[in-house]
C-alpha cells in the first residue's frame, strides 16, 4: 500500500476516533441522567411519575426506531444550529450523539435495574435523599454494568460512524466506501476492515478490563 494510502487511512482513523470519542462522551453524559430518569420514574421506584416515565420512554423509543442514515439527514437544521455547519466530522458528531444517547440510556437503565432493591431500602432507612440514593447506591453498585453498557454503545457508534460519510463526516467507513468500493481498490477496503476489527477488539477488551476491575460481587 502506498505511503499516500497509509496517510489517508490514518487520517480516517483519526476522524473516526474523534467522532466516536466526542459522540460517546456526549451520550454517556446525557444518557446516564436519562437512564436514571427512566428507571426511577418507573412504577414503584423512588421518583414514581407515570407521565414523565411514559414521555421519556416514548422519546427514547422514537429516536431508537429512526434508522441512523435517516436521522443523519433529518436533523440537519439542528446540526447546523449546534455545530455551525451541516457537513464535516464536527457536524457528524451531533446526529451520532443523538442516536447514541437514548440507546445507551436504555442500557444504563437495565444495568441499574439489576441493583438489589434491598440496597435502596437500606439507604432509605438511613434517611438518604433520592439524589443520594442515585449517586451513592444506584450508580456505584451498577458500575460494572454501566461500563459494559458504555462499551456496547461505543462499538455501536463505530458502526454508525461509517455512515457519517453521507454528510461528509469522513472516517474509516467513508474511506472504505469511496476508495475501496467506488474506486475499486479492494486493498483499501481490506485495510479499513482490518483497522475497524482491531479498533472494536481494543474497545471491547478495555471495557471488559474495566468491568472486571470494578466487579466486587
Amino acid at each position: 500500500m502506498s505511503r499516500q494510502m497509509i496517510d489517508l487511512l490514518l487520517e480516517a482513523l483519526a476522524e473516526t476516533l474523534a467522532m466516536v470519542g466526542a459522540a460517546g462522551a456526549v451520550a454517556i453524559a446525557a444518557g446516564l441522567p436519562l437512564g436514571v430518569l427512566l428507571l426511577i420514574s418507573g412504577k414503584g421506584h423512588i421518583l414514581e411519575n407515570r407521565p414523565v416515565n411514559v414521555v421519556a420512554g416514548a422519546l427514547v423509543n422514537a429516536v431508537r426506531s429512526t434508522p441512523f442514515i435517516i436521522l443523519l439527514v433529518a436533523i440537519v437544521p439542528l446540526t447546523r444550529l449546534i455545530a455551525g455547519t451541516s457537513i464535516g466530522t464536527q457536524a457528524a458528531i451531533v446526529p451520532l450523539s443523538i442516536a447514541a444517547t437514548p440507546f445507551v440510556a436504555r442500557l444504563f437503565e437495565a444495568a441499574m435495574r439489576e441493583v438489589d432493591p434491598g440496597l435502596i431500602h437500606a439507604a432509605q432507612a438511613m434517611g438518604a435523599t433520592r439524589l443520594q440514593i442515585v449517586l451513592k447506591v444506584l450508580i456505584p453498585e451498577a458500575r460494572p454494568g454501566l461500563m459494559a453498557a458504555a462499551t456496547v454503545m461505543l462499538i455501536g457508534l463505530i458502526g454508525y460512524s461509517a455512515m457519517a460519510g453521507a454528510i461528509g463526516g469522513g472516517g474509516l467507513g467513508d474511506l472504505g466506501v469511496r476508495y475501496g468500493y467506488q474506486r475499486f481498490l479492494p486493498e483499501v477496503m481490506a485495510a479499513v476492515v482490518v483497522v475497524l476489527i482491531v479498533l472494536v477488539q481494543a474497545v471491547q477488551s478495555l471495557g471488559d478490563t474495566l468491568v472486571r476491575r470494578y466487579s466486587r460481587r
Binding site: D116, G118, L119, A122, P140, E141, R143, Y214, R216, R217
Partner: peptide
Amino acid sequence: FQHFNLLSS
C-alpha cells in the same frame, strides 16, 4: 436486614 443489604462496591 436479613440479607444484610451491604453495598457490594
